[in-house]
């Protein structure tokens, strides 16, 4: 896919030229439409941004003012952010989130790529069945299997109270990432792979030296998705790690932060923004890879 902004510019042109035979009346309608569209766009953009603005404004209020209906801070308390970082556990939650998201993403990529490759480019008995199973796993609500899964990790492996029960499974391939990578792999012409085969490469060599370099953009997109999925995950840490505050992640800890600072909406909002921040920063840096990823398959719930 070409860069979206470029294609936006491209498609904008034909429609303007389409109005070539328009008379004055139609031109006036065109101007009105232009103004109307941009006004609606601007209005909606403000509505979408306002929540962030209110969060930011409240996060720098004093505790007392944050409990009032005031919208604008009387005095600016940027030190609220420092106070959030000093809160017991906050730094630990950051580390845990980074570990879960970082390790989880690395494992996902390493374990999912070969499966996606096999499903897209290799012929073997039961391939379609395997694909159906991947899609079924992808669509399965995690709550369906959570009770036996918890009992397995608790009673057989004794790993509850840690994040391992949600990290280890990623080493066995993540259905969603497999599916996404497979969709991308389908677009790679067979000839490249056949050429590698002729050169005498085995499947692993072909995968590592020919395919992986070609699907780098998709790998980046899938890695970003997985990172965000782990970063945002609340259910997993709640089930497996909630009994041990030392293993909490930011997403889970934020909830208890709200509980412990029930009256400090300013601190809660500061903490909320601090949890959102990494995701937003990464997105702004890697926007292109992202949009490509979303449009890759039209999935991602």
């Amino acid at each position: 896919m070409a860069d979206l902004t470029e294609s936006l510019a491209l498609t904008a042109r034909p429609r303007t030229t389409g109005a070539v035979k328009s008379d004055q009346w139609r031109r006036r309608i065109g101007v009105l439409e232009w103004v109307g569209l941009h006004a609606v766009g601007l209005g909606l953009a403000i509505v979408f941004v306002l929540p962030f603005v209110f969060l930011l404004l409240t996060s720098v209020m004093s505790s007392d003012q944050a409990l009032t209906t005031d919208l604008w801070p009387r005095t600016w308390h940027w030190e609220n952010y420092a106070q959030v970082f000093r809160t017991e556990g906050f730094v630990t939650w950051w580390k845990n989130s980074l570990m879960y998201a970082g390790l989880g993403t690395a494992l996902t990529i390493v374990s999912s790529t070969p499966v996606a490759y096999a499903l897209a480019k290799m012929r073997f008995t039961g391939r379609n069945a395997a694909l159906m199973l991947v899609i079924s796993m992808m669509m399965l609500p995690p709550q369906v299997v959570i009770v036996p899964m918890y009992l397995l990790w608790a009673k057989q492996f004794h790993l509850t109270g840690t994040l391992w029960p949600i990290i280890i499974p990623l080493a066995f391939g993540d259905a969603y990432s497999i599916f996404l990578l497979r969709q991308f792999l389908l677009t790679i012409p067979r000839e490249y792979i056949d050429a590698a085969k002729v050169d005498g490469c085995g499947e692993w060599r072909t995968l590592l030296s020919v395919v992986v370099p070609m699907i780098k953009p998709a790998l980046v997109a899938v890695a970003l998705f997985q990172f965000f999925y782990c970063w945002n995950d609340y259910f997993g840490p709640q089930i497996y790690a909630s009994e041990n505050p030392a293993a909490w992640t930011l997403s889970y800890g934020l909830q208890s932060f709200k509980g412990a600072h029930h009256v400090n909406w300013n601190l809660t909002m500061a903490a909320t923004l601090l949890v959102m921040a990494p995701v937003i920063v990464i997105f702004l840096l890697a926007q292109r890879a992202f949009i490509r990823g979303v449009t890759l398959t039209g999935v991602k719930g």
Binding site: Y150, L151, A154, K155, H158, T160, G161, S242, E243, N244, P245, A246, S256, A260
Partner: peptide, 19 residues
Amino acid sequence: TVPNVADDKILQGIRGGNG
């Protein structure tokens, strides 16, 4: 000590055998 453990977590931890 482990502070700030909610009730259902206590029960869950004991049941899981890692309490």
